[in-house]
């Protein structure tokens, strides 16, 4: 049952991401990317990592892709995108190189004999608890650093977006808009 599910998901994910890369239509690309993200969470569920699966669902499908979609509002999605390919061989070389490197990185532990889990799962702990145990013991420092980094990014975003927030262009007439442009 589980190998069947794995191969089903793997084929579907690969196919959908191929559509993302190949399609000339923005809407198809976005939708297949989102659908692929949903199916990746299916892979997590097969592995028994329920928590990560749901996080994949909420973060990538619910938030990241929705922000992409928000950016898509500024394009005419009914029209096809014309892509420029100046040096197709370079794209092929770089993309293929990255793909091969990734395969080697992830295949190496399977080939190796001496690899073993440093922090084996705690017996009796459910999946979210196990994630929490690892996160707040071994990876506490990276976790906190990441959170501080996100906080910095958030504050920076607010400041960037909030600059000149009290000025409303729609409430000004054209002379005043020209004045503000000169001063800037």
């Amino acid at each position: 049952m589980i190998p069947f599910a794995f191969y089903l998901f793997a084929i579907l994910i690969t196919g959908l991401f191929l559509v993302t890369v190949m399609s000339k239509n923005v809407l198809y690309a976005m939708t297949s990317l989102a659908a692929g993200m949903v199916l990746i969470s299916g892979l997590f569920f097969i592995l028994g990592a329920d928590f990560l699966g749901v996080v994949q669902l909420i973060v990538y499908v619910g938030a990241v892709m929705a922000v992409y979609a928000f950016a898509m509002m500024f394009f005419d999605v009914t029209r096809d995108v014309e892509e420029r390919h100046d040096k197709p061989w370079l794209v092929f070389l770089l993309g293929g190189g990255i793909a091969v490197t990734l395969v080697v990185i992830f295949a190496a532990p399977i080939m190796g004999e001496t690899v073993h889990a440093l922090y084996p799962p705690v017996a009796g702990a459910t999946n979210p608890q196990a994630v929490g145990l690892v996160l707040f013991t071994k990876y506490l420092l990276p976790f906190e650093v990441a959170s501080v980094m996100l906080l910095v990014a958030m504050i920076a975003g607010i400041i960037l977006a909030g600059k000149k927030m009290e000025i409303s262009l729609s409430a000004m007439d054209e002379d005043m808009i020209a004045d503000t442009k000169e001063h800037a």
């Binding site: 989102a34 969470s41 928590f51 749901v54 669902l57 909420i58 499908v61 929705a66 999946n127 979210p128």
Partner: peptide
């Protein structure tokens, strides 16, 4: 699933693609 609430929230979050698309 032992993450019931999160699953429901995640699925409702995925539901945004209906109106969006």
């Amino acid at each position: 699933v032992n993450i019931g609430i999160l699953f429901v929230l995640g699925m409702m979050a995925a539901g945004l693609y209906g109106p969006l698309l």
